[in-house]
Amino acid sequence: MSAEKVAFFILSGLTLGGGLAILFSVRLMRAVVYLLVSLFGVAGLYILLNAEFLAALQVLIYIGGITILMVFGLMLTGPGQFVNPAESRLKAVAAGVSSLTTAIVLLLIVKKTKWPAGTQALAGDTTAEIGRLLLTDHVFAFEIASVLLLVVLVGVALFVRLARDGGKP
């Protein structure tokens, strides 16, 4: 087994194990830590795929930004134990069955598929290439993403303000 394969199994183990641990952890704070593990695994997989820029973004944004925000959120609100809202056994079983079927179907499809793109390494500097695409082919998506982020900022600020003083300026 090549070193790359070993790394792949370790990293996907981290990703999947972290994901499962989130599902079965009772304390939210622990779930966030497991999320961190899972996201690290994904970052590692990106490196294996020669997408270094994506891996760096994954670490910076998801691990450095979002999970830390979640930790702050938890510390400030202090929800303590997570109460499982599934009130009936039937619902839990139905949810389990449907998730499992979906997973199995997707797994079979992924296994059956002859993947069109080969596994050759991406040529050259991926960061430069992403930058070039964002400002040429995908320039409009890039601009609309800024409108979207503006909307989110305004919405959140407004929501907090409305909760505090109910619309008074």
């Binding site: 998506a141 979207l148 909307v151």
Partner: peptide, 16 residues
Amino acid sequence: IMLFLALETLSIPVYC
């Protein structure tokens, strides 16, 4: 990608 971004831009303000 445009389709996704447009859908989010139309949905998120409505949630607020």
